[in-house]
Design a protein around this nucleic acid. Structure first.
Length: 267
DNA sequence: ATGGTCGCGGAGCGA
């Protein structure tokens, strides 16, 4: 079985590209982030025509997550317990469309779009940290009730946990940029301490291996990217992993997402 | 191996 995650940066703008990719790669489960649409604009037929069931969680042009599967899609869960709400200025805080889960052939799959943080001093940053803490508690509860649970936490984590996960760590630190700060990294490492491991890195060692390249500043041709999309697996799932890859080719050409798909093969 | 961003929505925000 092959499972994958991909921040597509608008599913409507990328539907043809996603369809081509599904046909080419033959993945069984795809966790999608940034669908950027409501249900009424979701390309349901594209998935059905290719043999995938799909569950979507999106209610505006922002965020939006989905899971497509051709090996079953059961017990769909939208948001997680105690997921923090966020609202800017005078707007009422809401639980944003950043998390959806489903059970696919025995694996509890999460499609996650972690808040960006925006800047170190922005209210979005404490939101990001508390969002991750609540997600970790929820993931841990899934393991405490069943230590053999196969759980895949997949998505755009918006964190570069190691210095080699950005093209120039000094640039990020000197500019005071997000994604590399100590609190963000601590929030990520808490998942590892809780028993979830990055099952992709062993098959895609760095430095210079990334999953995201900003559209601006010619970041992709200059090979200036960031590794911020991860598949974290519980122990029982990690034991099944036989391979992994980052599909850098998919970042090329006109109409590409700024993120590459990340794929894990299970035995 | 691209071409000094892109997507949504219809201005400006978010990434």
């Amino acid at each position: 079985m092959k499972i994958a995650t991909w921040n597509v940066n608008s599913l409507r703008a990328r539907a043809d590209r996603v369809e081509d990719w599904l046909r080419r790669t033959d993945v069984d489960v795809l966790a999608i982030q940034e669908t950027k649409c409501k249900d009424e604009n979701f390309p349901w037929e594209m998935f059905e025509n290719n043999g995938y069931e799909v569950a979507h969680f999106g209610f505006s042009q922002w965020n939006g997550v989905a899971i497509a599967s051709r090996v079953g899609l059961d017990d769909v869960e939208r948001t997680f317990a105690a997921q923090p709400a966020f609202g800017k200025d005078d707007k009422d805080p809401i639980q944003e469309a950043r998390a959806i889960a489903a059970t696919c052939n025995g694996v509890r799959v999460w499609s996650l779009y972690v808040p960006n943080g925006r800047s170190l001093s922005d209210p979005h940053m404490p939101y990001k940290i508390s969002w991750l803490a609540a997600l970790k508690e929820h993931a841990v509860s899934g393991l405490s009730s069943d230590s053999a649970a196969q759980i895949a936490l997949m998505g755009d984590w918006n964190i570069a946990p190691r210095d080699e996960d950005v093209w120039d760590i000094d640039y990020f630190l000197n500019e005071g940029l997000t994604h590399v700060s100590a609190p963000e990294r601590a929030a990520f490492h808490a998942f590892e301490a809780a028993g979830f491991t990055d099952v992709v890195r062993p098959f895609t060692p760095g430095p210079g291996v990334y999953t995201y390249w900003d559209y601006t500043q010619l970041r992709f041709p200059k090979k200036q990217g960031m590794r911020i999309d991860f598949i974290l697996a519980s122990a029982a799932l990690a034991a099944r992993v036989t391979g992994a890859a980052i599909d850098r080719e998919e970042r090329k050409g006109k109409g590409a997402s700024d993120h590459a798909p990340v794929v894990v093969e299970l035995g």
